[in-house]
Design a protein around this nucleic acid. Sequence first.
DNA 1: CGAGTGATTGACGCAGATCAAGCGAAGTGG
DNA 2: CCACTTCGCTTGATCTGCGTCAATCACTCG
Lengths: 243, 243
Amino acid sequence: MTTDCGRCPLRALRAFEPMDEREVDFMRGFKSGEMTIAPGAIILHQGSDSAHLFTVLDGFGMRTKLLSDGRRQVINFVMKGDFLGLQAEMLGEMAHSVEAVTAMRLCVFSRARIWELFSSAPSRAYDLTWTASREESLLGDRLVSVGQMSGEERVAHGLATLYRRGTALELLDDEGRMPLPFRQRDFADALGLSLVHTNKILRRLRERQIAIWREGLLTVLDEGALHAEALIEEEEERQRPLI
Amino acid sequence: MTTDCGRCPLRALRAFEPMDEREVDFMRGFKSGEMTIAPGAIILHQGSDSAHLFTVLDGFGMRTKLLSDGRRQVINFVMKGDFLGLQAEMLGEMAHSVEAVTAMRLCVFSRARIWELFSSAPSRAYDLTWTASREESLLGDRLVSVGQMSGEERVAHGLATLYRRGTALELLDDEGRMPLPFRQRDFADALGLSLVHTNKILRRLRERQIAIWREGLLTVLDEGALHAEALIEEEEERQRPLI
DNA sequence: CGAGTGATTGACGCAGATCAAGCGAAGTGG
DNA sequence: CCACTTCGCTTGATCTGCGTCAATCACTCG
């Protein structure tokens, strides 16, 4: 029992651009089902290929890269609306793994039909390329953070980025709390900091009443201060295409 | 006096996939000229838009991101065959700048016609998306390096990556030297290390007879050791599409 | 010939890594 | 239902890789 693309709950979000009827029709043909993933499960394996592509309908995950000696870099966090598996399709193998942190629900597309997308739905192909560009841009931001910023700046930047994405996806409850089910370990690996140091910085942000993250919920008390710390200039999220 | 796409000197390189006659025809229409850039000039500005897209015909450059307080992250180095400006096209503005390090020669495409590429040259659109994916994958590798590796590992990784790219582009002369016209400052900003520390590590690699980089030329004396240091597993570069 | 740029090297100090230990919550199996 | 383990978070103590400061050298250029 899968949801019809015409009623896709994601597209109802303000974050995403509308789709015209032709595009929705195409997506109906492109979609091959839905899938549920358990917390901790690996969705896509670094170095291997995949018969499917996915759009995240619900849940949280992360893209990770493992080094031979066990060190790990979290490339990015995965939230609803993100598209997974493009690298496997294009490059032949994934350069990173994608793993579920919470239970996730995924919309599944058959990789065999992606060529149809290019040959018969150019507007969808454009949106796919758009998505790849956006991913690259997010990666670039993280690289600046990890390469140039101090610990405090990185933690603030990481939280601010997640908070911004969460806000755009309307994840905040009526008390302004956003679900953030990652472990501090994951967050530290995303920032290139040690777990211990990350923990101490989070404590300081809590004590300074800027942001509180505990029990899987993030509350931003002073968004201005958080952005100042993160060297982020205010700018709202624009609508983006959904695949 | 511009080169005809049928005789594009880049496509002659083994690194790039062949193009069929239809595709070459399309590129002739897509190409709007050539351009020469002086060393140090900015080709694309972070935060702004561009009327053109480019493929690098010759020369070296770099993608950089500037922080408000002057810190700088070099996102990636730019070599011949790289495609520039996709982000401006897709996202509306560049998330980073692109600046020339040596004199550069660029093949210029009109941005207005990119939609034609999607609507009437799907195989070219596919290749464009491929290119975006590859860029993302390179960025991911750099993120792992900057986020998880020690100074020695990062420097080795950086040199090894550049050397691999240069080899694929047949840039090595008959004594195995590859042009590498960047300043140590640029390299340090790419690795997220200080200039001084980078310099000291380069010296050690020189003393250990692993790699020598001076006067704009890189010589790798012990590729095995370099790769070991960089935690890179051997793997040759496959052919890739050219835009 | 003075000024600017890039590479090089030594001395010193700190941000953040590593080590170590304790705490509460959630299994789990006898 | 209680011992026992596991997992994530927290906090203090100590150590070190790397940043910062500072000075010199070699070139190039107007």
